[in-house]
């Protein structure tokens, strides 16, 4: 392997390779995948001089540790966390130079769930259907990182950004998700639709890249029976038989048979990716544009 490589010293709870995903294959049953917090992934790529489609690492709650085999520039963003290079504190959210064979430690998230690590040149594992993203539902793309994994890196395209401070949104204390009701709101009782759009739910610890699960009032159906399988979109709020809404995230199944009560605005999904279990969630119905 060339010296443009990154050794994984500590993989963390769940660290995956992510880029813009592989939209356009839903008719074959292929989820779109891609970074859950797309603005954070795009920002760290810009900071290190990568194009927007370069693959980054997405950590989950407890970070990771990496050792580049050559000098690289990295930027860590998304969920705020301590960063250290060879044991010395380094800044979060700006480009940082890492000497060859130095240890980059991305610590546990202080708030939020997912930190993003961009490395100059990007992670260049073999793409599958045009994307390097790990898809946890269907198993496409590279498997989640394990200790000792060595990832190939590309050649840096441009110099890193010259910045001192970059504002980034804070992970949500309360998650407010704007939704457009439907397409299957009529499968629920008027009381259930009213409760959905007014009551407070909480983020469940069973949430993952496939969906943000919630706990709260169960939503009763007006119609019983089975809905024939139908296409599902990113942000769809599906309600399984237990009545607890699930917000579909990047690795969601492309078809499903539970009714979708509403769809979350795409602009609100990055915050959903950063909501820790227990965070209060409110769904606010807005008119379709």
């Amino acid at each position: 392997m060339s010296d443009r490589a990154l050794a994984v010293v500590r993989a963390g709870a769940l660290t995956t390779v992510q880029d813009l995903g592989r939209p356009g294959h839903a008719h074959l049953g292929v989820p779109r995948s891609g970074a859950l917090d797309q603005p954070a992934a795009a920002l760290v790529n810009r900071l290190v001089g990568n194009p927007p489609g370069a693959a980054v690492l997405e950590t989950t709650l407890n970070g990771c540790a990496l050792r580049p085999r050559s000098e690289v520039t990295v930027a860590v963003g998304g969920a705020p966390c301590p960063v250290a290079v060879d044991g010395r504190p380094a800044p979060w959210g700006v480009p940082v130079r890492i000497p060859a064979d130095a240890l980059l430690e991305v610590g546990a998230a202080v708030s939020g769930v997912r930190s993003y690590v961009a490395v100059s040149g990007g992670v260049t594992v073999e793409p599958v259907l045009g994307s390097r993203s790990t898809d946890l539902l269907s198993g496409l793309g590279p498997p989640p990182l394990t200790d000792g994994t060595v990832l190939p890196l590309g050649r840096p395209a441009r110099p890193h950004a010259r910045v001192d401070v970059v504002p980034q949104p804070r992970p949500p204390v309360e998650l407010v998700l704007r939704v457009t009701l439907g397409p299957r709101a009529d499968w629920f009782t008027p009381e259930a639709v009213a409760a959905f759009a007014s009551r407070t739910f909480r983020v469940s610890s069973a949430s993952n890249r496939i969906g943000l699960r919630t706990e709260g009032p169960a939503l009763d159906r007006a119609l019983s029976g089975e809905l024939p399988s139908e296409g599902m979109v990113l942000g769809a709020v599906q309600v399984p038989p237990d009545g607890r809404p699930v917000v579909f995230l990047a690795d969601h199944p492309t078809t499903g048979g539970y009714p979708v009560i509403a769809v979350v605005r795409a602009a609100d999904l990055p915050a959903a990716a950063q909501a820790v279990p227990g965070t209060p969630v409110r769904f606010v119905a807005v008119r379709g544009r």
Partner: peptide, 9 residues
């Protein structure tokens, strides 16, 4: 049926 802001069922 409208599905969010950019889809139709």
């Amino acid at each position: 049926l409208p599905v969010g802001d950019e889809a139709l069922l």
